[in-house]
Write a protein that binds this DNA or RNA. Structure first.
Lengths: 185, 185
DNA sequence: TCCAGACGGTACTGATCGGTACCGTTTCCG
DNA sequence: CGGAAACGGTACCGATCAGTACCGTCTGGA
């Protein structure tokens, strides 16, 4: 557990928001489980919405650097993203993609939380485009969006099936996609 | 607007739940917008959770018969499911898949709402398996799960992009998948 | 050493949550 | 035509929501 109140709040809020949903977790819970005083929370974050945004921004940075690190460790090929996902799917605390969940929970597309979540997805698309460009694939921009569609489909499916199988399924799909793109090139 | 109180409740609740989320919509809102008295609601549904389950079960039936009807109208081929989805994506009130949204919002996998939503997805998988079997494709059971993964990925992506493009993207993926399966058969 | 800022704890606000109780009216069916 | 069931409206319940105010304490840097 982090030492500073602000860091403890972010860590506790992220864990609870991800596990149970943003709306489902009250300020009271976050205070109790983080051991932070009420006033301290509102000293660092003017409102719950600000806390939510801060949590999402922190998670965005951490998640994308985690993905890049795993992909590199797994060989650096674009298909490695699905192997990285598989590692997440089997974890006991896996609850889908925090950013998909946020976009669904905060329905209003103009809400700050929704915007941060949408921006995260665009960043992931950008990362995959860069990965596919490095792999010298034809039409990396189109393929990147198809890869992310497969990743999101796998995440949502894994939420139901609670196994790593959807990652493998999406990977196979991506493989045939690469093979088809390579053959027509 | 339906005449009977129960039907009005179901219609109003479904619309509000889909548009804003289950948690975000209070009983008060449903009563006000449906014009139903408080006691009447609790006469038909013992609790909000029961109303939620009833709404989801009704939507499940309607959604699946809608899909079957559209697929048949579009020629009956498995790929037609993506054309059907495209029709939904461009609607102004499109807010993703109500069942995915429900599984995310009611995080507990054992909750009644979550269970109904998960059962819906399995029914869709069953429908696609039947569709793919009729199309005499190799390994229809595996392909059905891959198709549903693509459908869910397209839905989640359409939620961000707000166009029909993800449906087309998923359709292309499914086409290459069918082509690959056909060539290895 | 001293003091300012960060901190945890508690009491409180008005609003809203899901749910209950009881009211008088309307509607439909025998 | 009569009565019972279905209905809409309102007052109310305890619990919880996000947010404010003020308390005494602890801590780190000058």
């Amino acid at each position: 557990m982090p030492v500073k109140a602000r860091d403890r709040l972010l860590a506790t809020a992220e864990e609870l928001f991800y596990a149970e949903g943003i709306r489902a977790v009250g300020i009271e819970r976050i205070l109790a489980e983080s051991g932070v005083g009420r006033a301290s929370l509102y000293r660092h974050f003017p409102s719950k919405d600000d806390l939510v945004v801060a949590v999402l921004e922190a998670r965005d940075r951490r998640w994308r650097s985690w993905l890049a690190e795993r992909v590199e460790a797994l060989g650096g090929r674009p298909l490695a993203v699905f192997d990285a996902l598989a590692e997440r799917f089997v974890r006991n605390d896996f609850r889908g993609c925090a950013f998909i969940n946020t976009m669904i929970e905060s329905a209003d597309p103009d809400s700050p939380a929704h915007r941060v979540a949408a921006a995260h997805k665009e960043s992931v698309v950008g990362y995959l485009e860069q990965l596919l460009t490095a792999a010298e694939v034809a039409e990396p921009a189109l393929l990147a969006r198809q890869f992310v569609l497969l990743m999101d489909g796998a995440v949502v499916t894994a939420l139901r099936e609670r196994t790593a199988a959807p990652a493998e399924r999406a990977r196979r799909l991506a493989e045939t996609l690469l093979a088809a793109a390579g053959s027509t090139a």
